[in-house]
């Protein structure tokens, strides 16, 4: 399966594969009314490739300008799905931006210490 970048409204999910990782750079703004509609097919393909290739998934949010709470919910859903499938996810954010620090530090509570969910920041 070939993964492709996703562009929807002002949001771009830019893909890059290396031998170990599927890197997804979140760029722009996510203010969609129903983000899960747009994101679900992309995530489905992403999970398939991660399962088939043995790569782990890395989300980079440093260049995101804004996302709404519905998008946060979609991110939580992919965190859950990846964990259920025992696939590793690493999230990288920009701790210099207070809103990113607050948003992502709150997600750290879902790190169960099993190595399946990691968070790191540019500022740390």
């Amino acid at each position: 399966m070939a993964l492709r970048d996703l562009v929807v409204d002002s949001l771009t999910l830019n893909l890059q594969l290396d031998p170990e990782r599927i890197i997804v750079r979140w760029l722009g703004k996510a203010g969609m009314r129903n983000p899960s509609t747009a994101l679900a097919p992309f995530f489905r393909d992403l999970i398939t490739v991660a399962e088939e290739s043995g790569r782990f998934v890395e989300f980079h949010f440093q260049e995101m300008e804004h996302f709404n709470s519905s998008t946060i919910l979609s991110i939580m859903q992919i965190i859950q799905t990846l964990r259920r499938k025992q696939l590793k996810l690493r999230i990288v954010f920009n701790a210099q931006l207070k809103w990113q620090k607050m948003t992502f530090e709150a997600l750290r509570q879902f790190d169960a210490g099993d190595g399946l969910f990691e968070m790191s920041s540019d500022g740390s």
Binding site: S36, S70, I72, I79
Partner: peptide, 21 residues
């Protein structure tokens, strides 16, 4: 906020923002 996230985590029913806003 942490409690709201925990309430939503594991709940895979389709919903808007789940009152998170």
């Amino acid at each position: 906020y942490l409690a709201a996230l925990r309430d939503l985590y594991g709940d895979e029913r389709p919903r808007g923002s789940g009152g998170l806003g």
